[in-house]
Each structure stands twice: as C-alpha cells, then as structure tokens.
Design a protein around this nucleic acid. Structure first.
Lengths: 236, 236
DNA sequence: GTTGCCTTGTAAGAATTCGTAAGAATTTGG
DNA sequence: CCAAATTCTTACGAATTCTTACAAGGCAAC
C-alpha cells in the first residue's frame, strides 16, 4: 500500500461521474487517476499499481465483468464495482468474480469514500492492528500494552479492570458519566455486582494517575451523579 | 482464520432473520452461531473468535454502533452491519466506525453470502500461503524446523505444542486472545483437558523467549481475560 | 528389547488480581 | 452546625494464574 496518499483509479465512461468521483476522493485525501476506456485503464495498470480500482460495468469497449475478474486475479488492489444494474443477481456475480464491493448508481460520493476507507483500513489492519494510545494531561496510556507512561517516561502497569474504566473516561472526556452507565458498559449484566466495586476500581486508577485525593484534577466525583474526566484527550 | 469452515457469528434480535441467515450461510458452507442479545454475543466472543460478525444495529439491549466500534478495535473479524436504516449518513457512520460492509434490510441472503465471501477472500489472499518463518522482536521463528533464533544467532529448539501457541500469537499480535479461544484453536475438544496445561505451555514458551517473569515484554497476561502478544510481526 | 532423552500433562504451592466489607471522609440538606 | 446519604480507602479473602517438580508416554540409538 502506498504511504500517505492511497491511489484510487477510476474507470467510467461518463466524464461527469469521473469528475464527481475524483473531486470527492481528492477532497478526502486520495490521489486519483481517471480513465474513460478499458484499454487506457489497462495500459495504465502496467505502469502503476493503484490501491483501489473503481470500475463501472457499463463500458463501451470491453466486458466489465471480465475485466473485474482479471483485475481480481492479477492486481492486488481492492476492486469496487459501480454499476447501474441493481439486481441482486448482478451484485452476486460481481462479487463472486472477485470484486470487493458493489455500489449501485446513483450513488452518494460520501458513501463511496467511506467504503474505500473501509477497504483500505482492513488492508492495513491485517498488517498490524493500530496501536491504541491515548495522550492526556502529560500521560500516555498504551491500551495494548497495559501501561501508563508519565511525562518523565516512567511506566506504570495497569490491570484490565482499571483499563476498562480508563478507556470509558477517555472515550468521553469532560462529560458526566453516571454510575449506572459505567456498570452497564463494564459490568455487562445489570445490577449484579456491588456498587463499591466500581469505586474501588476508580480509586485504584486514581492512585496510579497520582491524583491528590483531596483535590483530584483528572477524575472528578460529582456527588450523587457520577464522575467526570477532565482534560483534553488525543487518540493516536 | 479457521480452517475449512469459516465461522460466522450472527447478532439479530429477530429469530426469523437469524434463522434465514444461518440457513443460507450453512448451506453455503459456513459454520454459524446466532445470538439475540448483545450481552450473549459479547460473552460468546470471549470463548471463540469468529471470522465474520453479522450485526443488526437495531438491538434492544445495547447501542449497536458502539458495539461495532468496539468489535472493530478488539476483534480481528470482518464486521458486516445489517440494518433497516437506509440513509446514506447511517451507512457512512457505520463504515467509519469500523464496519467492513453495510447491508440494508430487506436483504437477499444470496447477497449476504456473496459479500461475506468477498471479505474472506480478500482476507485470505492477504494472509497468503501459510508462511513458515516469522520475525519479531529480534527473534526469528522457523516453524518448519522448530527452531527459534535470537538476534545473536543462537538457536533454541521448540516443541510442537509450543509452536502451536507461538503461531497463534504471531497470527494475531497485539490482540487479546482469551484462554477459551486458545483451547478452541488448539486443544480441539472443548473443556476436557485441564486448564493448567495451557498455562504450562505458555510458561515454557516464555522461558524460551527469555521473558522476565515479573515483567514480560512479549507475552502479557491479562488477568481474567486472556493473553496478548506484543510486538510487530513480519512473516516471510 | 532396553536405555536415555525429550515432550507433555498433572499436581501443588506461590503470586497476582479483583471483589467485598467495614470504617473513615466528604457532601448535601435542613 | 448536625444528621443522613454518598463516596473513599484500607484490609482481607476468593478466584485466577505462574512456576516448579514429577510422572507418563513417545522416539531414537544402541
């Protein structure tokens, strides 16, 4: 896969549609090349290897499905069919022949972008799942390694239970989280375990974050309502 | 990925739809498990790792999109949303949150099958033919010769049982693997053999990898949840 | 066939994690 | 300022997991 700007190749015989797609895709941060005929397209494939191919089936100069089939076998790119043929049978055969997705005309460019992103994301994820790291208030939380790192670089391990609470906070900073919400998000089954278990989890988490019990700066208690995590959080 | 029969997990609150999907999928050669509630589904995920998850967004007991998001981060499975909400915006957010595909109700089972196949096909193609050599954290593991080689070139043999565990880890690095999942992937028969056998395998593997028991850097224990293998893995 | 080495599972004691209980501290309302 | 409710923290115990030790089984060399 190309580095920063994934390359999307567009094959459609209608210039308007090519234009619409390339505009939307470039705005979304992709590099695009467009072709109106299958022969041009195939010639270009010999020079460059796009990450994604958007192929319209209704081509004047070649059978679209055959082209898709060849692409699927020979190219490593993700192949997305765009077609006016909306029958289920069309979609099934397109997918069976090797397409990775099938979008029906008329389409919304936003959905095309989202589907392309989904394909690329999975591609990348297979190489190695993105590390889940959160930065906040001088801390870094590595959820895959279960450690906290402070500004000085000191590592502090945290347990799974503590990590669940921390993740909940970091996913919704500066927002009140009621005790009931926590129970539901974490404990799973409702109302079983003792309320105090949650307190203890939070208490232990606060200790590891070096909070002053008298004056917590990160995890604040809202008496009678719940908790709130203060600070700016950046996920990487 | 599981061997011959890929495993598809179905989460939908309507029994009729579950039935229709599982029938179609099993006829197509998949193994299926069905769940009507998110809690059941999540509990099952701790025991087994499906290859594909079909998730209905209209769940009674949990926010479907939040569930999809968590799945995308924590599970290696392909995630396909099935939903009655047909707006483009719904589809875009679903895909942005980590879904690999979005199918609108009412759907044709044949298309669902085709889309699942498309996901699995790409998955497998990326994985390529079973590689025999893995590089990670300065080590090289030669699975065909049952040998570990460290950065200095020193060779350490490992046994078949140890190799099974190691391969499981290297196939899904930086991802939590529950004890139950390991049993299913390795032990074959469910629940018979003593739990401790797995511990001992891991313990021996850790020893060969020169792990510090107090502070393991490669194979981490997540109390009550399972194990996680840390590091970048490259197969050759 | 026997010996010896290697692999694997089982058992038992040690260590870690997490939930519970109980007393202390804090906040709210009057 | 006092009483009641809520929350915090410490200590303890149950459950889970780690490691070491030992025994059973397999395989190769002799």
């Amino acid at each position: 896969m190309s580095a920063a700007q994934p390359h999307v190749a567009i094959l459609d015989d209608e210039p308007e549609i090519r234009r619409m797609l390339s505009d939307a895709l470039e705005e979304a941060g992709f590099r695009t090349t467009s072709y109106g005929r299958a022969t041009e397209f195939e010639a270009a494939l010999k020079r460059t290897a796009p990450d994604v191919c958007l192929v319209d089936l209704g081509l004047p100069d070649r059978d679209g499905l055959a082209l898709v089939h060849r692409l699927a076998l020979e190219s490593g790119a993700a192949i997305i069919i765009i077609s006016g043929r909306a029958q289920v049978q069309d979609r099934v055969t397109g997918l069976e022949l090797g397409a990775d997705d099938y979008i029906i005309k008329p389409f919304d460019p936003a959905e095309v972008v989202a589907r392309i992103r989904a394909r690329l994301r999975k591609h990348r994820a297979d190489a190695g799942p993105a590390a889940q790291i959160a930065h906040f208030a001088g801390w870094r939380a590595y959820f895959d390694r279960y450690i906290l790192v402070d500004a000085a670089g000191t590592e502090t391990p945290f347990s799974h239970a503590e990590g669940e609470v921390l993740r909940l906070f970091l996913d919704a900073p500066n927002r009140l989280i009621s005790r009931a919400q926590m129970q539901e998000s974490l404990g799973g089954a409702a109302g079983e375990s003792f309320d105090r278990a949650m307190d203890v989890r939070i208490s232990r988490l606060r200790t590891k974050l070096g909070e002053d019990p008298k004056n917590p700066r990160l995890i604040k208690t809202i008496y009678g309502a719940g908790y709130i995590f203060l600070g700016e959080v950046r996920w990487a």
